[in-house]
């Protein structure tokens, strides 16, 4: 780690003032990602602002519109096991529990989960070119070892993927991210929070320097009857997704009234395409329809030397997860495939 100063703050305003809009001042909450990045000298900080004492953001509350507000400082574990979440947003609970390990989920916060950085090998190796870590240095992954990399939304500058599981569910649930900054409060639809790499892969998301995530709102619709999170990876647990899928259905009289499908492990952000969801609307839950939706969702997918298999794998995972969502009781721990 480089040598930084450290300060604790007890409310959001203090945090904003300590951050002072400077990119070298960083927030630490759970610490599971920032401390890792600091130790590898990938991230450098002048000052760490410890927001753990900010109690106003550390809870789950019911909203008047029937939705739920997840405090940014609430831990991933407490969120996943919260009775309201388990009952009304089991898809979110499942996705969180598919990520990392129990210890990390006990530390990691909801806000921090959104701020995770990629696990791209080259991003993590400070001695190789990487546009995300060192803008303008080039992307080593495109011509390198890219088995874990993106098949959707890449640019010629970056093919890294966003590693979160929780955020795949939040994307599917159409959450909203509440943000406080020097100029007051604002919010972003979840789909607007994370970015595609484009020409500036060093910028992961649309949170500005000096801003703080205060909470995440879930709308009333939680797809608690028909949901599934499926995560495919090189071992059964404690590893990042090669492909993951969050699926929620509202089913009425045997046909799909509303569908949500989001993909993880395939792009620089959780991948959603409402065309695929609209396609399923008012259709029967059949393999044929699921396959057609998968095809729409994967439109434009592009593979590289080692990751082309992800296109077919993602397609099959989408279809399987649609079936698993029809029968959520069959789901296994760690979001392993069932049925």
């Amino acid at each position: 780690m480089n040598n930084f100063s450290y300060t604790k703050v007890s409310n959001v305003q203090e945090a904003i003032s300590e951050l002072d809009g400077d990119i070298r001042n960083k927030i630490v909450a759970g610490g599971t990602n920032i401390n890792d990045l600091l130790k590898y000298f990938i991230t450098k900080a002048d000052k760490l602002v410890d927001i753990n004492p900010v109690s106003e953001n550390n809870s789950i509350i019911r909203l008047d519109n029937g939705g739920i507000r997840l405090g940014a400082l609430h831990t991933n574990a407490d969120t996943a096991y919260d009775p309201i979440i388990e009952e009304r947003y089991p898809l979110l609970s499942r996705a969180i529990l598919a990520g990392a390990s129990a210890q990390i989920r006990n530390m990691a916060t909801n806000g921090g989960n959104l701020m995770q950085r990629t696990r791209c090998y080259y991003f993590y190796d400070i001695n190789t070119p990487c546009n995300k870590r060192d803008p303008g240095s080039g992307c080593s992954a495109i011509q390198g070892y890219n088995r874990i990399h993106a098949i959707l939304g890449q640019s010629e500058n970056c093919i890294a993927v966003f590693p979160s599981d929780m955020c795949v569910a939040l994307a599917a649930l159409s959450a909203t991210v509440n943000i406080m900054g020097p100029n007051g409060e604002r919010n972003l639809a979840f789909a607007e929070f994370h970015r595609l790499p484009g020409d500036t892969p060093n910028i992961d998301n649309n949170l500005k320097h000096g801003e703080v995530i205060t909470s995440i709102d879930l709308p009333r619709q939680g797809f608690e009857k028909n949901y599934s999170y499926l995560k495919l990876r090189d071992r059964s647990s404690y590893s990042f997704a090669l492909v993951s899928v969050a699926t929620g259905f509202e089913i009425e009289n045997g046909s799909i009234k509303e569908a949500r499908i989001a993909l993880g492990g395939v792009a620089h952000k959780p991948w959603r395409n409402t065309e695929a969801e609209d396609f399923l609307k008012d259709k029967e839950p059949t393999r044929e329809n699921f396959t057609a939706a998968a095809t729409i969702l994967l439109e434009g997918a592009k593979g590289y030397q080692q990751n082309a298999f992800k296109i077919e794998l993602a397609k099959r995972a989408i279809i399987r997860n649609c079936f698993m969502a029809l029968n959520p009781e069959s789901q296994r721990p760690g979001a392993k495939p069932s049925l």
Partner: peptide
């Protein structure tokens, strides 16, 4: 249970 390696003691 948490990971002490990713925790700064000062926190």
């Amino acid at each position: 249970r948490i990971l002490s390696c990713l925790t700064l003691a000062v926190m």
